[in-house]
Every structure is written in structure tokens, then in C-alpha cells.
Measured scan of single mutants.
Amino acid sequence: MDETGKELVLALYDYQEKSPREVTMKKGDILTLLNSTNKDWWKVEVKITVNGKTYERQGFVPAAYVKKL
């Protein structure tokens, strides 16, 4: 869990989004888990830094590609 009590997951593999509802992740990324009720796709939040500014983006990743921490 992070400092706000949200559950975290670890990306076990790289994943490139294939639709606007998904998010890209790299092996080793730590993501915030938002919803894991679907056994195949989990909703996560990723933080992306571009030119020194951090953005948060929500989307789905394959559940088999992440592990709860």
C-alpha cells in the first residue's frame, strides 16, 4: 500500500496499450490499483513525468501482467 492506503501492483512485464482505455507500463513499474474485480483486466493509475511535470492516467492492464504488493 502507498502512503494514502491505496493498494499497489508491480508490473511483471512490459505492456503497450492497444486502446485508449488501456495504459502502457514497463516491467518493474509500480502502479496504483483502483479495481481488481475483473479477473482478466485490472484498472490502475500510472504516473507519467513529461518535461518535469507529473501526470496521472487511469486505464486497464492485463491482470496476469501485474502482481499485488
Rank of each mutant, 00 (worst) to 15 (best):
M1D: 13
M1I: 13
M1N: 15
D2I: 14
D2S: 13
D2A: 15
E3C: 11
E3F: 05
E3W: 05
E3H: 10
E3V: 13
T4M: 14
T4W: 10
G5T: 09
G5F: 12
G5C: 11
K6L: 13
K6C: 09
K6F: 09
E7D: 09
E7L: 12
L8K: 14
L8M: 14
L8I: 08
L8N: 05
L8E: 08
L8D: 04
L8F: 09
V9K: 01
V9P: 00
V9N: 00
V9A: 09
L10E: 12
L10W: 07
L10K: 08
A11I: 02
A11Y: 02
A11N: 01
A11G: 03
L12P: 00
L12K: 04
L12F: 03
Y13G: 05
Y13T: 09
Y13F: 14
Y13I: 09
Y13K: 13
Y13E: 09
Y15I: 01
Y15Q: 00
Y15C: 02
Y15M: 01
Y15E: 01
Y15P: 01
Y15K: 00
Q16W: 12
Q16Y: 14
Q16A: 13
Q16N: 11
Q16I: 15
Q16D: 14
Q16P: 05
E17Q: 12
E17V: 05
E17Y: 05
E17T: 08
E17I: 05
E17P: 15
E17L: 06
K18N: 10
K18M: 12
K18F: 04
S19R: 07
S19L: 08
S19T: 14
P20S: 12
R21T: 13
R21Q: 14
R21W: 15
E22C: 05
E22Q: 13
E22S: 05
E22V: 04
E22N: 05
V23E: 00
V23S: 02
V23A: 05
V23D: 00
T24F: 03
T24E: 03
T24H: 04
T24I: 03
T24C: 05
T24Q: 04
T24Y: 03
M25H: 00
M25R: 00
M25E: 00
M25Y: 01
K26V: 09
K26S: 10
K26D: 04
K26Q: 08
K26Y: 11
K26T: 08
K26C: 09
K27S: 07
K27R: 11
K27Y: 04
K27H: 06
G28C: 06
G28A: 02
G28L: 02
G28Y: 04
G28E: 02
D29S: 07
D29G: 03
D29K: 03
D29Q: 09
D29C: 04
D29N: 05
D29V: 03
I30L: 10
I30W: 04
I30M: 06
I30R: 05
I30S: 02
I30E: 03
I30C: 05
L31Q: 01
L31F: 08
L31P: 01
L31W: 03
T32E: 07
T32L: 13
T32W: 12
T32P: 15
L33H: 01
L33Q: 00
L33G: 00
L33C: 06
L33R: 00
L33M: 03
L33Y: 01
L34K: 05
L34S: 02
L34N: 02
N35P: 03
N35I: 06
N35G: 06
S36Y: 07
S36R: 08
S36C: 09
S36A: 11
S36Q: 14
T37N: 14
T37I: 08
T37S: 14
T37H: 10
N38A: 07
N38S: 11
N38M: 08
N38I: 05
K39L: 10
K39T: 12
K39D: 13
K39W: 06
K39M: 12
K39F: 09
D40K: 14
D40R: 13
D40N: 13
D40E: 13
D40W: 15
W41E: 04
W41C: 05
W41N: 02
W41P: 00
W41H: 03
W41R: 03
W41M: 05
W41A: 02
W42R: 01
W42S: 02
W42Y: 07
W42M: 04
W42H: 02
W42K: 01
K43I: 12
K43H: 12
K43A: 08
K43Y: 13
K43R: 11
K43S: 07
V44P: 00
V44K: 00
V44T: 01
V44S: 00
V44M: 01
V44H: 00
E45C: 09
E45A: 15
E45M: 14
E45T: 07
E45Y: 07
E45R: 09
V46H: 10
V46K: 15
V46Y: 08
V46C: 07
V46G: 07
V46R: 13
V46D: 03
V46N: 07
K47D: 08
K47Q: 13
K47W: 09
K47A: 09
K47R: 12
K47H: 12
K47N: 09
I48F: 12
I48L: 15
T49C: 11
T49I: 15
T49P: 06
T49M: 13
T49R: 12
T49V: 15
V50K: 10
V50S: 10
V50H: 14
V50E: 12
V50C: 10
V50F: 11
V50W: 09
V50I: 12
N51A: 13
N51P: 06
N51K: 07
G52M: 06
G52Q: 06
G52D: 10
G52F: 07
G52Y: 06
G52K: 07
K53Y: 14
K53S: 14
K53C: 10
K53V: 12
K53W: 11
K53G: 12
T54R: 08
T54F: 10
T54P: 09
T54G: 08
T54V: 14
T54A: 11
Y55H: 11
Y55K: 08
Y55G: 07
Y55E: 14
Y55V: 14
E56W: 14
E56H: 15
E56F: 15
E56S: 15
E56M: 15
R57I: 06
R57E: 05
R57Y: 05
R57T: 06
R57H: 07
Q58S: 15
Q58F: 06
Q58R: 12
Q58K: 09
Q58Y: 08
Q58T: 12
G59L: 03
G59Q: 01
G59K: 02
G59R: 01
F60H: 05
F60M: 09
F60C: 08
F60Q: 03
F60Y: 15
F60I: 07
V61M: 01
V61Q: 00
P62S: 01
P62E: 01
P62I: 02
P62C: 02
P62H: 02
P62N: 02
A63R: 10
A63Q: 06
A63F: 02
A64M: 11
A64N: 15
A64P: 08
A64L: 15
Y65I: 06
Y65D: 03
Y65G: 06
Y65R: 05
Y65L: 15
Y65A: 13
Y65S: 08
V66M: 05
V66G: 01
V66L: 14
K67S: 10
K67P: 01
K67Q: 14
K67F: 08
K67H: 09
K68M: 10
K68E: 06
K68R: 13
K68W: 04
K68N: 06
L69C: 09
L69R: 03
